[in-house]
């Protein structure tokens, strides 16, 4: 056999040997155990520690908040929907003390802002009209939003919003308000909020807050002081029935 052919054969043989030896050493032991993949890989993936926890995980560390939450309407919203993002701000421990995003105007509106495509069963608000730039948590307890942050019912769908006031009585009383808020609730200047087409319960709550001092404004605190509960309801009934923008 000519020498150069022999050399070629030897070279090929050497390559084959290197291939098989290399393959024997480089292929992980668990490869091909279950198929064309490393058998250890599913175990490695399965060993990652879960971080998004079931709300019951906080039952013991936050008993009071857990109790409020689990009896309120937000019990469908797990704690970490509002709290988990804070992990990214470097917070330690299972539940960061504050929610994320920090401003409830950004947090709550993720689910409650009225936008196209959001289905009708989800309670939605026009943020500008409803909150007037106030944080949602000034009026709503985030853990049970049908209550105030102080545990009093803010509204039950049956009471405030559905209570019928007297429209005519409200219209009569509204004369006191016309100078600033306009006869039909469309205000006379940018300093005065529109009241037309605002929700009834919102108006009652706002007036009550001016009375109590939980919301303060030198003018409105004075105006609201003299109003009875019936007056508030009648005024709210009148203004809420007016067309937005007075049209």
């Amino acid at each position: 056999m000519p020498k150069h052919i022999v050399r070629l054969i030897m070279l090929l043989a050497a390559i084959v040997v290197v291939y098989f030896v290399g393959r024997a050493f480089l292929t992980p032991k668990s490869f091909y155990v279950y198929g064309h993949f490393r058998g250890a890989s599913p175990r490695e993936i399965a060993s990652i520690k879960p971080t998004f926890l079931d709300p019951t995980a906080f039952k013991e560390s936050e008993p009071a908040i857990y109790a409020t939450w689990s009896t309120g309407i937000h019990k469908v919203v797990p704690c970490q929907d509002c709290h988990v993002g804070a992990v990214h701000e470097g917070a330690k421990g299972p539940i960061p003390r504050g929610p994320f995003p920090k401003s409830s105007l950004e947090l709550c509106t993720q689910c409650h802002q009225k936008i196209v495509a959001r289905p009708g069963f989800q309670p939605q608000i026009n943020v500008a009209l409803h909150a007037h730039g106030l944080q949602c948590v000034t009026c709503h307890n985030p853990h049970s939003p049908t209550e105030t942050p102080f545990g009093k019912p803010l509204f039950t769908t049956s009471t405030l919003a559905s209570a019928q006031g007297n429209l005519a009585a409200g219209q009569k009383l509204s004369a006191q308000c016309a100078a600033c808020h306009g006869a039909k609730g469309v205000s006379t200047g940018p300093a005065f909020p529109n009241l037309a087409c605002q929700s009834k319960a919102y108006l009652v709550t706002a007036l009550t807050e001016f009375q109590k001092g939980t919301r303060s404004n030198p003018i409105m605190s004075g105006v609201a002081k003299g109003l009875s509960n019936a007056d508030k309801l009648n005024l709210a009934t009148y203004f809420s029935s007016q067309k937005c923008g007075g049209k």
Partner: peptide, 14 residues
């Protein structure tokens, strides 16, 4: 689906 994107955020963190 209400488009709140809580799933996206939970997934990213998890």
């Amino acid at each position: 689906c209400i488009g709140c994107l809580r799933c996206v955020e939970a997934c990213k963190i998890e």
